[in-house]
Design a binder for these strands. Structure first.
Lengths: 200, 200
DNA sequence: AAAAATACCGAGTGTTAACTCAGTTTTACT
DNA sequence: AGTAAAACTGAGTTAACACTCGGTATTTTT
């Protein structure tokens, strides 16, 4: 692994676990056995390093999600959303540090003054919410999902799932224990009145 | 207003808007026209000041919520939850800074090493989720809410609402635009199969 | 193999921020 | 009014941190 790569990895871990301000370039240097000067050689300054971490995070999350969705076939919109929800929860566990980074307030604060930061965050959320919205639209065509505003519905489903993941992040409650209940709640929110299914 | 009080207020604003590490005692001193020494006279150090802010936040949120709930009468459990949800969204706007503080990762990190910090956070979430749980239990008795695990259901409702509030916090989406949709979704999650109401 | 370009190093620098403390002002009490 | 206690002040101290820079090692090119 190149030094540049190991700096990025260590920065991802430390920025997410300790926070941006709480992580010093000396910390990163110590964790990687790469001299501090090298960090500045590759990333110019700490802020740009953070942006690189965020950009990498965006690439990884979007790629993971799109490759999951595209090579798959769903019976109907409802099934698509159920799958998207469970994949989101799976991914939040697999890419723990990246999701933790997104659950910190720092990136959103940086986004207020740094357009490139905001672009990365918006790209991630747009990608995720677009997938949910697509599922709603598909479900409304095939009759598995009731008529309701697609974008808003996607946002609500997303915030429900993300909120539960956050409980885990905050060490308040174990998200995986709520997995089934989340899926059931999604179905209830989306179900059409007549053909109401309750599976386990 | 006493100096101690104005320090607490300024600290609440700055810690929530800028972050803990990003706020210096000089910042607080500047905003209050109180000398830095005075901050240390009253709070001993920056960490203890933060804890005082958090304790105050806990007191205020719990008091607001309990006084809202206790002087009120609900037709059934469903109505109680609807009211709790809308009051939560109202309060998140009214006490913007305190909620922002709770939406930052810092307090949860501090909670890992500082039991008194964890106690404050748990007290807040316990209070809120207890209220939702109580609503579920009530609704299951009076028939307005379906049979489902009360605690888990309360957690899901809570994370849905809190997740939407967070969109606002992060400047990604305006929570108030989703208000009606949230209420409708809650009803759908909770409703009994037979007596399914859909109001506006 | 020599030269050029790239990657890397870590001691040094300037700044910032938490916290202290010796002294001053205000309040409380007799 | 006089005195003791509490509240307050801000210059000074110390440590940590982001970043620089002159020099060295490594890789690439010719």
């Amino acid at each position: 692994m190149t030094r540049k790569e190991s700096i990025l990895q260590a920065a991802t871990v430390l920025f997410s676990q300790k926070g941006y301000k709480e992580t010093s370039t000396a910390d990163i240097s110590g964790l990687t056995n790469v001299a501090e000067g090298t960090i500045y050689y590759h990333f110019h300054n700490k802020e740009k390093l953070f942006l690189s971490v965020l950009e990498r995070t965006r690439e990884m999350i979007i790629e993971e999600f799109e490759s999951y969705m595209e090579n798959r076939h769903f019976r109907d919109g409802m099934e698509m959303i159920e799958n998207a929800v469970s994949f989101y929860m799976y991914l939040a566990g697999k890419m723990e540090n990246q999701f933790l980074l997104l659950h910190r307030h720092y990136p959103y604060q940086m986004a207020l003054t740094l357009p490139s930061c905001r672009e990365n965050l918006e790209a991630i959320y747009d990608c995720l919410i677009d997938i949910f919205e697509e599922g709603v639209l598909m479900g409304q065509k095939d009759g598995s999902i009731a008529k309701m505003p697609p974008r808003k519905t996607a946002l609500i489903i997303f915030s429900m799932v993300d909120g539960v993941v956050r409980f885990k992040t905050y060490n308040l409650y174990d998200a995986s224990a709520l997995f089934n209940d989340i899926i059931v709640s999604c179905r209830k929110i989306l179900a059409t009145d007549h053909h109401y299914e309750e599976g386990a």
